[in-house]
Every structure is written in structure tokens, then in C-alpha cells.
């Protein structure tokens, strides 16, 4: 049997696409470093990474939906839903630890419902999560009557502001999430089945993998990490804002795509998704320091995503 000589041209572009996020991150950091002395400072990079942590956790959740060839649009509402649950329960006098668990569990419930509709009722992922985006957002607004709830907890404050020496808690949470997701995807049976279902659901079914259950689990995992991100958001903001988080939604998908995961499923890159999250946050952070209008920021983020999609075209 002859050795397969891969087509050289597309091979190089595929390689380029795999390293799009780290490469772009270096370029963006150098550009901002040249543009302003305030970007590449220890304190700014520290804050930038803290801001990236929430998006990174969210993107890691999105990664689960994307790896089974799906998408989770509901995170835009699931994130404030977790925050609102934490706010409501904490204000009602529920002990903080329990309130955090309830918030995360609430997000898991949203994920399980999504996963049931997509996996068992075979509804289109895009429509299902678009629908639950709207439903969950409405429920959140009903729960909070549209008001931001202040959550004054020294514990949450400490998580957002402190750390072990220079290492901030938020980084560690994101790092722990990344390691766990990596381990799950690449070192466990469940992860193999997630990749298999995303890579070819017929073949997966043919080998006896419970495809429906695997899909459900993927959306549940997305919900779980969304809940964790929601708690982090409350810690960082000192309160629960019930409004829809479309920026976080788009950025979470963008981070995964930038990271080199295939939207057609079956390919995942945990390092890529985290790098993608840092890259997108860096753009916003740098623009803010330089004083470029935030309207340009959304354009830049969108342009980067389109560029990543273009690169992904050549990966096939």
C-alpha cells in the first residue's frame, strides 16, 4: 500500500488554521505593545487574564456542544440565568455554598433540556438553543423583575480579586476547567464517544455508541460550565445582571472556532479555545486602552471570527 502524500498546499493552510489563535494572539499583543505602553504591563495582563477567565470557561462549555457537531446559543441566557439564581437565592438567605450549587444546577437543567431536545427528539441544535435562549432569558427577567441584584459576599469578592500570591483565583478556576475538559475529551471513554459522535454519528451508532445520550451529555456539560461562568460573573461584577449576554454568546463560539475546533464536529482543541478566549478579550482590552470606540471593538471581534472561518475553509 502506498504512503499517502497529503496535498501540500491545503496541508500548509490547514496547519496555519490550527495555529491561528496562538499566532494571532502574538500578533495582537505585539501590536498593542507598540501602540501603547499601558498594554503589556503586569497589572494589565493580570486583569486581562481575569477577564478572559469567564469567557474561557464559557468557551470550554461551548466546546462540548461544538464537538458533537452542535452549537449552544442558549449560553447568552443561561449565563445571566445562573447569575440571577445565585443572586435570588443569596438574597433570600440561602447559604452561599448552596446558592452557588443551585445556580450551577440551574444551568445544568437548561443544558439537559437542550440536550434532550437535540439528542432524543432530534430537533435542530440551532433552533433548539435559539428557542431556549429566548425562553430562559424571559424566565430570568421574570425571576428578577428585570433588576440587577447586588450580591455582597466577601467570599465571592475574594475569588474575583485575590489569589495565591500573584496567581489569581480566576486563572486557577479557568485552568482547572481547561484541564478537566481536556482530560474528559482526550483521556476518557466518554470523550472518545463525544468525538466519535461529532466525527460521524452513523459510524458511532453502528459501533453501538449511545448517540442520543452522548449528545445530551454534551449539552449538559455546556450548561454546567456556563453555570460556573455565571458564578464567576457575579463574583466579578458584585451582582447579578439579568440581561441577555449576546457578547459572551458570540465570543464563546468565536473562541472555539478561533481555537481550531471544527464546527462540523469531531475535532476539539482545548488549548485553542482558551487561547481564543484570551485573544478576543485582548482585542477588547487593547482597544479600550488605546481609546478606540467600542463600536469598532465589535467590528474587530467579528472580523477576526470571519477570518478564522475563512481559514477553517481550507482545513477540510
Amino acid at each position: 500500500m502506498t504512503a499517502t502524500a497529503a496535498r501540500p498546499r491545503s496541508f500548509d493552510l490547514a496547519r496555519a488554521a490550527d495555529y491561528a489563535a496562538p499566532g494571532a494572539l502574538v500578533v495582537v499583543w505585539i501590536a498593542f505593545f507598540i501602540a501603547t505602553p499601558h498594554f503589556l504591563t503586569l497589572s494589565n495582563i493580570g486583569d486581562l487574564l481575569v477577564a478572559s477567565s469567564i469567557l474561557a470557561v464559557l468557551a470550554l462549555g461551548q466546546q462540548f456542544a461544538v464537538v458533537v457537531a452542535g452549537i449552544d446559543l442558549s449560553v447568552g441566557a443561561n449565563l445571566p440565568w445562573a447569575a440571577a439564581l445565585l443572586g435570588a437565592t443569596a438574597t433570600a438567605g440561602v447559604p452561599l455554598g448552596l446558592a452557588i450549587l443551585i445556580a450551577i444546577a440551574g444551568s445544568v437543567v437548561v443544558g439537559v433540556v437542550n440536550g434532550f431536545l437535540v439528542g432524543y427528539l432530534k430537533m435542530t441544535d440551532f433552533i433548539v438553543t435559539l428557542g431556549s435562549l429566548s425562553v430562559v432569558s424571559g424566565i430570568t427577567l421574570l425571576l428578577t423583575e428585570g433588576n440587577t441584584v447586588a450580591v455582597s459576599s466577601p467570599f465571592l469578592q475574594a475569588i474575583a480579586l485575590d489569589g495565591i500570591g500573584p496567581v489569581r483565583w480566576f486563572w486557577l478556576i479557568a485552568l482547572a476547567a481547561a484541564v478537566l475538559v481536556w482530560f474528559t475529551l482526550f483521556r476518557t471513554r466518554a470523550g472518545t464517544h463525544l468525538l466519535a459522535v461529532g466525527g460521524g454519528s452513523d459510524a458511532a451508532l453502528g459501533s453501538g455508541i449511545p448517540v442520543r445520550r452522548v449528545r445530551l451529555a454534551a449539552y449538559a456539560a455546556s450548561g454546567l460550565l456556563c453555570g460556573v461562568a455565571g458564578v464567576m460573573l457575579v463574583a466579578r461584577n458584585g451582582g447579578a445582571d439579568p440581561s441577555l449576554q449576546t457578547n459572551y454568546l458570540l465570543s464563546s463560539i468565536a473562541a472555539v472556532v478561533l481555537g481550531g475546533s471544527s464546527l462540523f464536529g469531531g475535532k476539539a482543541s482545548v488549548v485553542g479555545s482558551v487561547t481564543g478566549a484570551v485573544l478576543l478579550t485582548s482585542l477588547v482590552n487593547g482597544f479600550t486602552i488605546i481609546g478606540i470606540s467600542q463600536y469598532f471593538q465589535t467590528i474587530a471581534v467579528g472580523a477576526v471570527v470571519l477570518l478564522a472561518a475563512l481559514l477553517a475553509r481550507f482545513r477540510k
Binding site: G199, S207, S262
Partner: peptide, 10 residues
Amino acid sequence: YQDLGLIDDL
């Protein structure tokens, strides 16, 4: 089977 049932990216 004719389509082999292999997962390309694994």
C-alpha cells in the same frame, strides 16, 4: 459496511 463505519478524525 460499504461506508466502513470509521471515524476520520480519530
